[in-house]
Design a protein around this nucleic acid. Sequence first.
RNA 1: GGGUCGAUGCCCGAGUGGUUAAUGGGGGCGGACUGUAAAUCCGCUGGCUACGCCUACGUUGGUUCAAAUCCAACUCGGCCCA
Length: 407
Amino acid sequence: MLPVTSPSEFQWLQRGTQEIFPHVPDSHDPNEQLIARLQQCDRPLRIKLGIDPTGSDLHLGHSIPFRKLRAFQDAGHTAVVIIGDFTAQIGDPTGKSEVRRQLTPEQVKLNAQTYLDQLRPILDFDTPGRLEIRYNSEWLGQLDLKEILELLATMTVGQMLAKEGFAERYKKENPIYLHEFMYPLMQGYDSVAVQADVELGGTDQKFNLLVGRDLQRQFGQAPQFCLLLPLLLGFDGVNKMSKSLNNYVGLTEDALTMYSKLEKTPDALLRSYFELLTNTPLDQLPDDPRTAQKQLALDVVGQYHSPAAAQEAQTAAQALVQGNQASGDAVPEFSLATVEFPVKVFYLLSVTGLCKSSGEGRRQIQGGAVRLEGDRITDVNLEFATPQDLDGKVLQMGKKKFIRLVP
RNA sequence: GGGUCGAUGCCCGAGUGGUUAAUGGGGGCGGACUGUAAAUCCGCUGGCUACGCCUACGUUGGUUCAAAUCCAACUCGGCCCA
């Protein structure tokens, strides 16, 4: 037997990890203990992480398992990223209270590519042997009805209904379609197809990852380890980060947007954000929450842009907040060339995109949110006769939105 | 296949013939306060360059001076029976 490495060597594995199973802490059997397996393996392990190309934008919540995947890569293992191009057409029912719409193959393909681009800052794409990208249509598209029935025969309706999402929907008398039952089975079959040693996933994926183990056993393979990662809370501090709740930080957002969102991280979330989104040692976090917020924002923005860009974003954010809009090369410009004069201010708010509609513009003026060159506008029907009256002036909506009017 | 109930604004959810974009909550946006936050308080929350005009309560027709509210068919869904 190989000499036992000190557990501290596996801190990268434990950091931000919610649960690993199977996990028999006292065991030295590498099939029951991931650390034992990692110590004793004589080849790079195959670490599976699947992603459904259902939307085109990833956010920091998605980055959590990928960061863990990167840690495995750095430890010398092989990341197997599975693009669920086939499963995306079904839609993962996990955590959904309703059916997802099905995507066309074209949409799926497009989404897959943008996903990979967004993952570039996180994963090691360059070191040979560290990354494998597979599309699950490769094997799922080949299954015939007989094989599908065999897969279906491994699970009971009771087992499926025990799954959180289904149980809820069933209880609420919401529709559950039969094809949705295929989803966990297909994801599990992915593990068989790529011969995964370990699969990563969010805690909401527990059921699906377990199915992988069952199916691997069914197909005569050693069942994979499953490593569950916590779901990142969004910056509202209550719900998990998600696009639909609009509490997310997108991976492709520009440095300034990203920075301004992150520097507002609720105090209660700071520690977990540091743990999950950075490599900062947790015993070295600043005591002052405001300092910590800034450090966090700087670190994360630096990862997805560059440290220099992060620094710039910090300066810009500071200027913006101090109402120092005059310092603005950062202030976007809007040309009045296409606007017909005389023009009312609420209409202007709408065409510049500062407000969603002219009605909203009107309401925002009444609410005291609109300023021109720093002076609050109070007259809803205020209008300007000629472009010269507005030339070069800065129109402001709320605290954060500015636009400079140019000819 | 039969029976039965349901479909309301971003979401949930009142309203069941008659001023009025339609109670309330959530969310969102804005204002005050502040640490750029949280908590709290206040305002707004269909569209239109607007003292007015449109479009809205699953779809399409109908009854009526008048309908989200009544009727019919249709679409989608829940439950029960087969």
